[in-house]
Design a protein around this nucleic acid. Structure first.
Length: 756
DNA sequence: CACCCTCGAGTTCA
DNA sequence: CTCGAGGGTG
């Protein structure tokens, strides 16, 4: 880069960094994510290295900015340094190379607030934020309210004067509780635990700080050094003085070992009680630390390995609305693609219009995005300072984007808008169908997957079901027979109704009619109808037909023959006609009636045709069905065409399994126990774990409550659940113990074995 | 009436 | 996973 343009860029960067820094340190605001900030700072440092003549007075030479003026300034006895960063393995290995290898001490890098404590003759006399590294703010009064920090040091060898450095932070569970309280009181919640900790520590009224459950962990000495040789002993010395230290440090002989720790912690990142943004790696030998020394801004003997950001900034491009299976209109955000927590995020849910208002989002805003619980992208809020005036307020569409009906509310005081075209909206019908095919509906994917070909033939004869002609061929050639057998098997297993098929059934190109315009005709579908199906291509995001898009005939193959999947679909639907009653009830798509309520209703009414003469009020006698559910069922039957659907299904010959009594739980080793599974298990997926518990006679609990007998805790279990469980004193066991308990009962063991 | 617990509904990406 | 709201209980 030529010197002139380098100069311009350096000035630009200096200005930006100074601005962000001021906001970050003095106003507790985060305009850009840490990762973006780091990128700026690195670019600047890089340029300054290339053009040292331009590097005077650069903010990159200092650490942080001058302290604000609310609190008294405190000059640190010894400069508080920050750490250099490594962002990938190569950078880390390069650092390890520079410092001459291990042993290394590794510990989590807490995402909190750096604070120094000064103890004089064992008494805490001063606590200060880092500030610019030289001068920080006096937060003594507030720090004194933090319970984990001793006011006086313990032990025999108490130094005359010592400075102790550490990190002040919130545990995640405490943070969640705090924010809930703030919101409940009508206040503005903190964006993240770090900001929250900073805000809490810098309260003018220390009574406010006292009410905030801050924690602190310390990690080093200033001014005074005990007579020891390694960093690990520093921790022991700190602990001996009664100071809180991390339990999570480990020492490794070489860089590979340390890197293993980095990877391990990354995978456990979310089961740690506080936020971490990386790992700090220190040369363990104190003599070597002294030899390596420090630069003006950071020690050479330590480095912070930073994980990819969990929170990033992106642009809110647009707000769109989807229509759910019950007609609910849910807004979601299209954002410019960003990498966060390992995946490229393009969309984020916005829940409802109230949320958009509450967060004050405008289309075009730069927004803070994170992955809640590591999975679901969530927009935390707009970065108001980055607005340029082109942002536009969003308003909820008046009409259903799928069918054009005027959106309305179920009840006047509801937040949610719904599409009132209950059984006619293609968008609703599409979602309804995928739900109906799913696990809480007819579960089409698993229906009949264990049937033998002979059984299939019997069923076909009984139900006038057509099978793919190529599978009915007769042959004596053993080679062909083997091949045929395989294809028959795969036919029995295949044939499910996913989003694509649902879309194909429900949508039609202009001028033709869809295969299915009403859920009542579900069991009347036949091959001739499927043969004629011609569907427009549908935009994956908006679920709207693409104008000028190519239409397809999804149930016909290239030769114009009906495809195997057409036969497969009808095969599955035929089986669905004999499904358990509760599955049929759930599949009707009644507001407030899902799998569980359907089971209750099924055991009340026993038979499907009872729906036609049902007084829903009578259902409220049953435990678990109240007024709202009864009214919803009534409304469905009378006003949403429910009776019509039931009648048409009956006409198509459904014979749902009469179900007055729900199957009793098996008697097994877990009889009468309520078991919760959280996190990922090695030998089970979510469903098979539930299955195993039920088979063993236990009840599966969906959430933490005091009724839970014990909890099976797998990999990366949620921190909130874990904290709550330990508060309630619930026994937590690992997967191995779980399997042991499952097998404890010998009579049951044989049955249980089939699960593994 | 004020809790606590459970269920329903909607959602993202690989 | 999370939110909100239904349903039961003290």
């Amino acid at each position: 880069m030529p010197v002139s343009s380098a100069k311009t860029r350096i000035e630009e960067l200096q200005e930006l960094i100074a601005r962000y820094r001021d906001l970050y340190y003095n106003q507790d605001q985060t305009l850009i994510s840490d990762a973006e900030y780091d990128a700026l700072e690195r670019e600047l440092r890089q340029l300054e290295q290339e053009h040292p003549e331009l590097a005077e007075n650069s903010p990159a030479q200092g650490v942080g900015s001058a302290a604000g003026d609310v609190f008294d300034p405190v000059r640190h006895l010894e400069r508080m340094l920050s750490l250099d960063n490594a962002f990938d393995k190569d950078e880390f290995l390069a650092w390890s190379e520079r410092v001459g290898g291990g042993p290394f001490l590794c510990e989590p890098k807490i995402d909190g607030l750096a604070v120094s404590l000064t103890y004089q003759n064992g008494t805490l006399v001063k606590a200060a934020t880092r500030g610019d590294g030289e001068v920080g703010e006096d937060v003594t009064q507030n720090v004194l309210t933090i319970k984990s920090i001793p006011h006086t040091l313990q032990g025999e060898d108490i130094p005359e004067l010592v400075e102790v450095r550490g990190e002040v932070f919130f545990e995640l569970a405490d943070f969640a509780e705090l924010n809930a309280g703030i919101v409940a009181a009508g206040g503005k919640p903190f964006a993240n635990p770090r900001n929250s900790a900073s805000g809490s520590l810098r309260q003018k009224d220390s009574a406010v700080s006292a009410s905030r459950p801050l924690k602190m962990l310390v990690h080093g000495f200033g001014v005074w050094q005990p007579e020891i040789k390694t960093q690990s002993e520093v921790y022991k010395a700190l602990k001996a003085l009664g100071l809180p230290t991390t339990e999570r440090y480990e020492v490794f002989a070489d860089a590979e070992g340390a890197y293993g720790f980095i990877e391990k912690l990354q995978s456990e990142r979310h089961s740690i009680e506080h936020e971490i943004d990386g790992v700090v790696i220190k040369v363990d030998d104190l003599t070597r630390q002294r030899e390596l020394g420090t630069t003006s801004r950071a020690p050479r003997w330590a480095i912070a390995y930073k994980y990819p950001p969990e929170q990033v900034n992106t642009k809110l491009l647009d707000i769109l609305v989807t229509i759910g299976r019950t007609g609910r209109a849910t807004p979601f955000a299209r954002v410019s693609e960003v990498l966060v927590a390992g995946s490229r995020v393009k969309f984020a849910t916005l829940h409802n219009s109230q949320q958009i208002k509450d967060k004050g989002l405008l289309v075009g805003d730069t927004v803070v995005l994170r992955k809640a619980g590591d999975v679901i992208p969530e927009i935390l809020g707009p970065v108001v300072d980055l607005r340029d005036g082109t942002e536009i307020e969003w308003s909820f569409p008046k009409n259903c984007p799928q069918c054009g009906s005027t959106l309305s509310r179920r009840n006047p005081k509801d937040i949610d808008l719904i599409c009132p075209n209950q059984k006619g909206c293609p968008g609703q019908l599409e979602r309804h169908l995928t739900y109906l095919a799913g696990r809480d509906g007819f579960n089409l994917a698993s229906l009949g997957s264990d049937m033998s070909w002979t059984e299939v033939l019997e069923l076909a004869a009984l139900e006038h079901l057509s099978l793919p002609p190529e599978l009915l061929e007769q042959t004596d050639d053993p080679k062909k027979l083997v091949e045929l057998d395989a294809r028959r098997k795969s036919f029995v297993k295949s044939g499910y109704l996913g989003e694509e098929t649902a879309s194909a059934l429900v949508r039609a190109v202009h001028g033709t009619s869809p295969a299915l315009s009403h859920i009542g005709s579900l069991f009347s579908l036949d091959l001739e109808v499927l043969r004629g199906v011609e569907t427009p291509s549908v935009d994956k995001v908006t679920r709207l037909p693409v104008i000028d898009g190519k239409s397809t005939k999804p149930f016909v193959n290239v030769d114009g023959e009906l495809s195997t999947s057409a036969y497969g679909l009808l095969f599955k639907l035929t089986l669905a006609k004999r499904a358990e009653l509760w599955r049929a009830l759930s599949s009707l798509g009644i507001h407030l009636v899902g799998a569980e309520v359907s089971k209750l209703v099924a055991s009340e009414i026993g038979e499907f045709d009872k729906l036609l003469s049902l007084d829903p009020e009578s259902l409220t006698k049953a435990n678990g069905i109240g007024d709202a559910v009864a009214q919803s069922i009534r409304h469905f039957l009378q006003f949403d065409g429910g009776e019509d659907i039931v009648r048409r299904w009956l006409e198509a010959g459904v014979q749902f399994k009469n179900q007055r009594d729900l199957p009793q739980n098996a008697i097994g080793p877990l009889s009468g126990l309520q078991v919760l599974v959280t996190g990922t298990l090695r030998n089970f997926d979510r469903d098979s774990a539930k299955e195993a518990i039920k088979l063993a006679g236990g009840l599966v609990s969906s959430g933490v409550s005091k009724n839970v007998t014990f909890a099976v805790v797998g990999e990366s279990a949620g921190i909130k659940k874990l904290t709550k469980m330990s508060e309630l004193g619930i026994e937590m066991i690992d997967e191995d113990e779980f399997i042991r308990r499952l097998r404890k009962d010998e009579t049951w063991e044989a049955m249980g074995d089939s699960l593994f």
